[in-house]
Design a protein around this nucleic acid. Structure first.
Length: 303
DNA sequence: GTTCTAGAAC
DNA sequence: GTTCTAGAAC
């Protein structure tokens, strides 16, 4: 995956990008000045802002923005490097427009989704409606196809993880945990897999629901490995899909730090705590590296 | 999903 | 008086 970012230097078709926001321009400009594969990630860590008008202009999030990306015949020539991290024959990875952590990407299956046996084919092993969301994928794709789609998404997520870890090392000098999973009830059309760093430090993290929707222990955030386990048993899969629809209430769970369970009366206090925890983890990790020459692999040293 | 803002909470 | 949340609008 060494030169997987090489496509980001491609000059993209600006006519396919309706009036990019100043932020998008800024990201693209900055990212082109940083050399190496981490450059696109550089802009992710910075704070994101968005003007109200961007919603109307169609550059902001919309219910079908992801679908638009996923159905592009040639994503790397249509999407700017500030939006597209990488693309393969059957998946793309994009920057989350409102990152809820220092690193936050979405992995999408492309449509048409070609069979593994013939990646250049124009055929799709799943109908478009099977890619609406996780529920649709599990219900409307046949067993072989759904496992192929999940596997392709998991593979791309691993690639994204590697890129994030490289970037973590470069910017902070240590690596911390990354979560990979789906939202039980997504708000954007087209099935997408979140790849998000566990710091959960971001200006876009603003509400209890935001925080709860990414807690790995609540049930609203469902890890890809768990989904892959479900699909090994059809009856179990149906039960789990049923359970997904009841997940909305989980977002009302009282605000606590998902790592230490400490309760917080409001978001600003939790955010302060997360900053403090991250600083502590970093200090511990850097100390360990100084003493042992490499980062410890125990939970103790991981964020 | 985000933004905006009224009024609750402090 | 200021901070913060939550519901409506987009």
């Amino acid at each position: 995956m060494g030169n997987c970012l090489s496509s980001s230097t491609t000059i993209y078709d600006s006519s396919a990008e309706p009036t990019p926001t100043p932020i998008a321009h800024e990201q693209a400009r900055r990212s082109s000045t940083v050399k190496g594969k981490g450059r696109a990630l550089e802009s992710l860590s910075s704070s994101h802002q968005r003007r109200r008008s961007s919603f109307m202009m169609g550059t902001g999030p919309s219910i079908s923005a992801l679908r638009t990306y996923a159905t592009l015949p040639n994503p790397s020539s249509s999407l700017p490097p500030s939006k597209l991290l990488l693309s393969s024959a059957n998946t793309i990875a994009v920057f989350d427009a409102y990152p809820k952590a220092k690193y936050h990407f979405l992995v999408l299956p492309r449509y048409p989704f070609p069979p593994q046996s013939d990646p250049d084919s124009k055929d799709s092993i799943v109908p478009l409606e099977a890619l609406d969301d996780l529920r649709s994928l599990l219900l409307k794709a046949d067993r072989g196809a759904r496992e192929e789609v999940l596997r392709a998404m998991a593979d791309t997520a691993r690639e994204v993880e590697e890129m994030i870890r490289d970037e973590m090392l470069k910017t902070e000098g240590f690596e911390w945990k990354i979560d990979v999973g789906f939202h039980a009830i997504p708000s954007m059309k087209h099935v997408h897999l979140h790849v998000i760093s566990e710091d959960r430090i971001s200006p876009a993290m603003k509400t209890k629901k935001h925080h709860n929707s990414f807690r790995p222990d609540l049930g609203f955030f469902v890890s890809i490995m768990e989904v892959q386990r479900w699909t090994q048993n059809d009856q179990n899969t149906l039960d789990r899909i049923e359970a997904l629809s009841g997940a909305q209430a989980l977002l009302e769970t009282p605000l606590t730090c998902f790592k230490c369970d400490e309760p917080f009366s409001n978001i600003p206090k939790l955010k302060q705590h997360l900053e403090k925890e991250f600083a502590k983890e970093k200090a511990t990790a850097l100390n360990h590296i100084a003493r042992h020459g490499r980062q410890g692999s125990s939970d103790e040293d991981m964020f």
